[in-house]
Design a protein around this nucleic acid. Structure first.
Lengths: 354, 354
DNA sequence: CTGTTAGCGCTTTCAC
DNA sequence: GTGAAAGCGCTAACAG
């Protein structure tokens, strides 16, 4: 069964691995011919050779080493992805799209989670680079991002996901945040909520958040009669959100219909939990709408209205955009902004509450 | 064959990459010395050389190529992970633990999602192997698993996650499913539910599922007065679960307290949605308990009781187990079975319903 | 059509 | 201490 590879040093080069040389020897041909076979240059090989090689490869279960191949050709067929927080369902949903696109195009994905840690972001970047990934998909945190900007000099293709980075020209794939936030806010206003709070994590340096605030403001600017307010929450501080919510409710006691807008799914969850602990119901007591569709959005009575992101498409588009750069496209910076989709459920059904 | 050579032109070997040769040249030393520096053999280098190399590396921002390094040494510091379904929160939670452990030990993770597709499982396996991953973490589907078994001959270290594979000796890391299922069932019985249905995806070939059924049966065997039944659901068939639920309820109309047990989080979600669409409330109409703690378990009134898995620890343990094999440990097959934790909420609070 | 040769970037004897 | 040289497994000229 398991080879008795005992010591640390026992992991010898190519332990047990079949090499192209072995195949060539056993097939009685040269390495070149085998290599040609692998490269699909079938019309450069005679019928008998072809058959010889084919059968030998099958018999030996030979699989070419991508490491050696990559070293020689410069193409590793490796894509690196850096994710700000793998516990965030949004990230995973996008990852799903990226992974699918990788498979479609014959690439393999290397994953790095930074857990919102700046240092780990840099380390991950270094690791991915050291494996000669052909391109990087980056869901950056936006802080201390100089190492990422430096990538531009190296010429390594990079696509930014969701969050752009000031001072560099990488392509960006993400939601059309301004429009989405406007749609979400409009919906609350249309439903008669005229005192709206947008709960959002600190927008500092995170472009997607800034744009959602911008869309929120734009919508409110058209409805001067309504009150609007953005509230910055720190999700890592337990109870912080609940306190802020309480504050907000105190400041708007009567005469106004209160609408709550969560700027992403994680905030939305915490907000829903805070409402629950305060025994506030939607839509009776407050209207409630959150960015990001979640598996359980419909489950919490009477259903939570959401602004869904096309996460899979986002991931897929990001990889295909990256591939274009890898294959030498040199056009100027592109921004692929996909539209969100409003899913209306009971949580914003103010009329029903009357 | 020609498309390959065409595309190839765009990505030259080592495009822009700093190599050890460059560092050596600019530092006025030999490649060997630089290599020694990289390998941490500082006492083999004189003070001036050391300093020369250090500063040159910093100035050039040199990063050694792991591909070349891996090719030469046989150690790639790459770990491959094959996940049955990345849309399953369980898989992601475990992935989180694996990734964390990888970072801790200086490994980089290559990810493959199979989407429950047998063919993609094989392709993923081949891909990971072709990159000379030092070991594999496998969340297999259990069907057509011969290619995985064959890995045993190659000597490539493999750790199975959650699901074991008959006829091979790979280590396994997972939940203590039998015990967990027993605990879950016991809890329902203790709470007075005496007609219990366990909803589970087809256990065929998936050891974890079989074991949960086993635990369920064990618990019921001790309580002969209670009725127990396992119900196989196909989550890919919309409405299937709801129909089965309806059937079950019809068969147990009165005199019995009905308890529903979902064998994993995805089944749990679907079951909760089915209950909702049928306007059945827990705990009033049925008791409800599901495997897998979810972010929103507490949010759905009056809270859903769950059997939580230590997902992060599972992932972490899997990688460390794999590392031991990579480093040459040759002991016989080990099984690391971590305990689950019962979290009791309102959904199984039958007394409150009285 | 086929094989020989020279590396890709790195580590590792083995001399000096 | 230090470096020259020989590969790791593979591909890409260049010959025949």
């Amino acid at each position: 069964l398991r080879q008795a590879s005992k010591q640390h040093a026992a992991v010898k080069p190519a332990a047990g691995r079949v090499t192209i040389a072995q195949v060539a020897r056993e097939a009685g041909v040269s390495k070149t011919s085998v290599s040609r076979y692998l490269g699909g240059e079938f019309d450069a090989l005679s019928e008998p050779l072809l058959e010889q090689i084919r059968s030998t490869i099958a018999r030996l279960r030979y699989q070419p080493s991508q490491m050696a191949r990559g070293l020689k050709r410069g193409r590793t067929r490796l894509i690196g992805m850096v994710v700000a927080d793998i516990l965030n369902p949004y990230s995973v949903a996008v990852l799903h799209g990226v992974e699918a696109a990788c498979q479609k195009h014959g690439y393999t994905l290397m994953l790095c989670n930074t857990g919102n840690d700046v240092l780990r972001e840099q380390q991950g970047l270094a690791a991915l680079h050291s494996y000669s990934a052909e391109g990087l998909i980056f869901n950056t945190q936006g802080r201390n991002a100089q190492p990422i900007r430096d990538l531009e000099i190296t010429g390594l293709p990079v696509v930014l996901l969701d969050r752009s980075l000031e001072g560099c020209d990488f392509d960006l794939v993400g939601l059309d945040n301004v429009k989405a936030a406007r749609e979400a806010t409009d919906h609350l206003l249309e439903r008669g909520y005229d005192a709206i709070a947008m709960f959002i994590e600190p927008p500092l340096g995170v472009s997607a958040r800034q744009q959602r605030v911008e869309g929120f403001r734009q919508s409110l600017a058209i409805h001067p009669a309504a009150l609007g307010e953005t509230i910055e929450v720190h999700l890592d501080q337990p109870g912080h959100l609940a306190n802020l919510l309480q504050d907000f409710l105190k400041r708007h006691p009567a005469g106004r219909r209160i609408g709550l807008l969560a700027a992403n799914g994680m905030v939305g969850l915490q907000l829903a939990l805070a409402l629950q602990s305060m025994r506030l119901r939607f839509p009776q007591d407050v209207g409630f709408l959150t960015f990001d569709e979640m598996a359980w959005s419909a489950l919490v009575e009477p259903g939570i209205s959401t602004l869904e992101q096309p996460t899979y498409e986002l991931g897929f588009a990001a990889l295909e955009c990256l591939l274009r750069r890898i294959n030498g496209e040199t056009s100027t910076r592109t921004e692929i902004l996909l539209p969100g989709r409003l899913i209306v459920r009971g949580s914003t059904d103010a009329l029903a509450a009357d």
